[in-house]
Design a protein around this nucleic acid. Sequence first.
DNA 1: GCACCTCCATACGGTGGCGTATGTTTTTAC
DNA 2: GTAAAAACATACGCCACCGTATGGAGGTGC
Lengths: 225, 225
Amino acid sequence: MVRQRTKETGGSTARQRLTVQDWADAALAAMGEGGLAAVAVEPLAVRLGTTKGSFYWHFTNRDALIEAALDRWAETRTETVIAELADEPDPGERLRRLFLRATRRAAEDPLEVSLLASAADPRVAAALARVTDRRIGHIAALFAELGFPEDEAHRRGLLAYTAYLGHTQLSHAVPRSLPAGPARDRHLDTLLETLLRPAGTPGAGPDVRQANPQRRVTEPAAERG
Amino acid sequence: MVRQRTKETGGSTARQRLTVQDWADAALAAMGEGGLAAVAVEPLAVRLGTTKGSFYWHFTNRDALIEAALDRWAETRTETVIAELADEPDPGERLRRLFLRATRRAAEDPLEVSLLASAADPRVAAALARVTDRRIGHIAALFAELGFPEDEAHRRGLLAYTAYLGHTQLSHAVPRSLPAGPARDRHLDTLLETLLRPAGTPGAGPDVRQANPQRRVTEPAAERG
DNA sequence: GCACCTCCATACGGTGGCGTATGTTTTTAC
DNA sequence: GTAAAAACATACGCCACCGTATGGAGGTGC
């Protein structure tokens, strides 16, 4: 990510120039490590091997950087995962792989947790709202594809996303509280299974979805990567 | 919370003196609003109507304040809720009321979200680990009281706490994504009901996995969000 | 009522980060 | 190959905050 900028190494140095996105990515990285407050121009400049002079050429001030970073986050960190699985034909398997992949990535990157904690900032809140709507909508669409009626699909999508968020929090705060290794995927599978099971929805309950006969699926092995 | 300290109001002023806990509570409040970085001595002093002189009498430095605040949080914000419901005889009802109460409080107070995002700090991580273990253990004990075997009770306790965390995150980040008003409790009730329903136990390794209720394989067109 | 201890106020020096001003290098235009 | 533009470097003033030093209020013992 960070470009090399050896400063006085004779002639071989191709002194890269930085782009707005380089700064935005660095800001997101810093944000993941230390929250919004850690998005500081001068430390970022050091990390990028440059100086403030570069920064204030690309941005008017720190706020502009934060907005750029949030935009970049909202664009990249949601669509990529969705797009990666677009070729999977089976919606159930697509849901499962989406869930496993998303939780794994979120467990590796503290950025999302950091952003969730910065929702007091209106710009962060806006980005979060955008991303959350998109994600829940997409999951709900998967449930709808699986045969659930519209509102029930949305309800389950909401639950799935809630589980995703909670799991992410735990994986960062107290990782040892969660099963690790192969038990991890099994745990997430049972969680998904719970969400997929036809519930006795008491409120506006259609009667149809009764007991699941003989569900069998796809080995959990496929999801590596 | 903040004590009144009118500064020059003649003689009627009972000039309160501050305690270590006053500072710790103020630190927790600031932390909820702006994260760990917002725990700054001088702003806190202003909020408390005093000066740094007071602070550095009670604490050696800022780090000591943070530790005191974390200790106070770990002690108060978990045991109180548990203790408040100790007189409820029915474990199912105790679980339900615990869940409703905890989620409501967490939705009102941003502190917990902020702490979860500061888990990179080892002191915060320690406090979180303590509190998390205590809470999951307590919830698991409730499930055990309800008749679930030990490991299954723990598994469901973990799921319940995951749901709690996720719900809390959503309620702060994108509150409108969650049902409000009376639908709120109904939503949480169905969530709990899901967790209480006897499920296909995972440990013994039955082949049942992942459900497809009446597949209605739709066009991939539904994918557009 | 006087020494004494507790608790707070005020005044300092130091650091880290923001934003501006202005110089310097690299790239592009032609 | 030179002039203009783009991209970066350096130097400055400013503010917020940390921690220290020291000087008082206010109560307490006797």
